[in-house]
Amino acid sequence: MAQFIEPFSHFVIPTKNINQPPMRSPRIFVLEPDNDVRPLLKHNLENWGYQVIMALDEADALQRIREGGERFGLILLNQNGRSIDEIIAIGRQIRQSTELDSRAPMIVMAERYGVELEGQNIQVGENEYVTYLEDGQQLRNLLALLCPV
């Protein structure tokens, strides 16, 4: 059973990402294994004003980071059959692979949850969040909060 990382007793939600250069669209790194969803999610994120780097899986993600050497302001991960712990560990590995963005916020889109969690965004670690989507606007709002355009 998936175990949440111990929640922080207090936390600060950043109002802007200090790693982003001024006057430039924030860049989001996305791990989305679903072939149907991936292009549409990219389209949505771009419409919301983000530059998007898409990865198919963990190996692809790490390869892209190694090859690209680019900075990004946020990591967005689809749980996609893994436990929350596993997907967060993957996100941390991605984040640690790029020294410049070691504090980039990470969002996991959870895929198994009850109605009691719907609509919630829960912080599970430093700059690490699990979103239990109730609607599409929730993701947009959370992105805007953690990685403003």
Partner: peptide
């Protein structure tokens, strides 16, 4: 399924 829901929302459905 929940994964269908997440896929639909990520793809651009509002609900």
């Amino acid at each position: 399924r929940k994964s269908d829901q997440i896929g639909a929302l990520a793809a651009g459905f509002c609900k």
